[in-house]
Design a protein around this nucleic acid. Structure first.
Lengths: 120, 120
DNA sequence: ATTATATATTTAAGTAAATTAAATATTATG
DNA sequence: CATAATATTTAATTTACTTAAATATATAAT
């Protein structure tokens, strides 16, 4: 992925967003879902994902329940009421940031960069 | 700014993008322009901006020329040919990332979050 | 049999990137 | 005279992420 450097700061919000739409998910599942939704563009590394899950649990935003599925341990995460609140805030903030970024990255019709795009 | 945490990783690309559209800019000007273009949403701190400018210069992506304007030192930065290439790449990568992010953040029509938005 | 791939979690060490904050200096405004 | 605005520099700290290795089971391929 070339997008690797841009994920910084967004992982927590992405996790909260997915959990806002799925009553419970486990770490591995979250990572797969992000890859799927982004057409393999965005991949959460486990070294980043799991520590964030623990942190969110410690902050009271997530609750967990461990189960054994097919002899394998699986730890499900769910949003707490507080987590639902924060998820809404964070997602809306990130959407706003994304819009602002778009304004900056929009091709300026005066520039050489955008003239090239139009083949001029 | 609430968007503070999301800027991580994007500053270098933002700087390259502005310099791709303006033949020369100085640090302070870049910071003001970003704030202006983003309606004050995105603010580059100087502690982040200037070290990135030095780094880009060291990597051969920027060239500089210092001038004294109104008795104040001012250091102009311009893209080198290599800088122009990299700017194109980086901007396109960030746009791609932004699109992927949008897919993930898009309200899932099945979710409680989006039902709430629609007042259901 | 055994090798590889997929599932699933944990965590330590190292690095990179940004925040915060202070220093410096001039001009313009109230 | 104080404050705000312009303009750059840089050190100390903090945070966040990458890389990598460890652990364990199931399934598919050779």
């Amino acid at each position: 992925m070339s997008s690797k450097e841009y994920i910084k700061g967004t992982i927590k919000t992405i996790v909260l967003k997915l959990l806002a739409e799925n009553s419970r998910m486990y770490g591995y599942e979250i990572s797969q879902r992000v890859a799927e939704l982004s057409d393999q563009e965005i991949k959460l590394t486990y070294g980043a994902l799991y520590p964030i899950l623990y942190k969110l649990e410690n902050e009271g935003l997530l609750s967990t329940s461990s189960e054994i599925i097919d002899n394998r341990a699986r730890k499900y995460y769910s949003l707490t009421p507080k987590g639902k609140e924060i998820a809404k805030e964070k997602v809306s903030e990130l959407q706003k940031f994304s819009e602002s970024l778009k304004k900056i990255l929009m091709p300026d019709p005066q520039s050489n960069l955008s003239l090239e795009i139009w083949g001029v």
